[in-house]
């Protein structure tokens, strides 16, 4: 039933080079990602969010001295959206919701980027070590991972953040401690699987050194699920981070979606819906967008399905 098996190779253009081939492959990949409407939607939302985060100092007037703190307009407490100077209204304490939404994107981007880069690095390193070396080392590392996995993510992060004291930096720390485990597990499973491929044996027969075999053969072929998971986690981390700051583990007054939702919740019963709704929607959109992109990447990044022309 394998009808695609026998398709011949198209004649190569004469001026071919490795760089061009790789560039073309990257282009094909991008085109594949873009051709899926849901992935594209996710990507567009993400790009909007990121530009909002990066341009925050220019599209709003930064609060002084610390722009990550909410500006307080004590003359306009709890005004509804559409009020002059406060298009999305203000909170009970006169915080501008629009400012919080925009600077919250900046905070969230910082949070997710820092946490993901730490956790991916640590997780990939530990997972690779366990999977590649195997034996006793694998056994010990994986038992440590098991201990971490036996405690639910949120509760674990909450406990750490609570012990360290309420500050946004501690939230980052807590999430980093919790989230690396997943990558270690994924990476280990991938490495063990990829290690069995004959191209690894082929590299050994050539006489290549183990470290280079790992770098050339094992790592590039194992990393895809990690990238997908990291994309999904870019969303999840903001979700969990917002939860932690919502229950008061970040500094009060921080321009952060979770803090803002928590500030606004008291007003909801009085009909002042806006202070919680807008930042809440941002959290939702952020998580959704990264999940859409992550799912799309999963389909595209498999080398066997990509460019199977």
């Amino acid at each position: 039933m394998d009808v695609t098996e026998r398709l011949p190779i198209p004649p190569a253009p004469p001026s071919e080079s490795a760089l061009r081939v790789r560039a073309r492959r990257a282009g094909e990949l991008t085109a594949n990602v873009l051709s899926n409407p849901t992935t594209l939607t996710g990507l567009i939302i993400i790009l909007l969010m990121i530009s909002m985060a990066l341009l925050a100092p220019w599209i709003t007037v930064p609060n002084t001295p610390d722009p990550t703190q909410m500006p307080r307009d004590w003359g306009a407490i709890a005004v509804p959206p559409g009020s002059p100077g406060h298009p999305l209204g203000t909170t009970n304490t006169g915080g501008d919701v629009l400012y919080g939404v925009i600077w919250g994107a900046r905070t969230s981007l910082r949070l997710s980027l820092i946490v993901v880069s730490i956790t991916v690095t640590v997780g990939v390193a530990i997972g690779s070590l366990a999977g590649f070396l195997g034996g006793r080392i694998d056994e010990i590392l994986m038992r440590i991972v098991d201990v971490f996995l036996s405690i639910p993510e949120l509760i674990f992060a909450l406990a750490i953040a609570a012990v360290l004291g309420p500050s946004f930096r501690n939230i980052i720390l807590a999430l980093a401690v919790v989230f690396w485990v997943k990558y270690a597990r994924i990476m280990r499973a991938q490495v063990i699987h990829v290690k069995q491929n004959e191209y690894v044996d082929a590299a050994r027969v050539i006489g290549d050194a183990p470290l280079r075999i790992f770098g050339k053969d094992i790592l590039p072929n194992s990393i895809t699920p990690v990238i997908v998971q990291a994309t999904l986690d870019m969303g999840n981390i903001v979700l969990v981070g917002a939860t932690l700051s919502f229950i008061g583990l970040a500094e009060a007054g921080l321009a952060e979606w979770g803090v803002l939702v928590s500030e606004g919740q008291a007003g909801i019963s009085a009909g002042r819906w806006w202070a919680s709704t807008f930042p809440g929607m941002m959290v939702f959109l952020w998580a959704l967008a990264f999940n859409l992109l992550g799912d799309g990447l999963r389909d595209v990044l498999d080398p066997r399905t990509e460019t199977s022309r």
Binding site: A18, V21, N197, E198, Y199, D201, A202, A203, K216, D217, P220, N221, P303, R304
Partner: peptide
């Protein structure tokens, strides 16, 4: 298939 690294030229 398995003996050639799919990500190498």
């Amino acid at each position: 298939f398995a003996s050639l690294n799919p990500r190498q030229l």
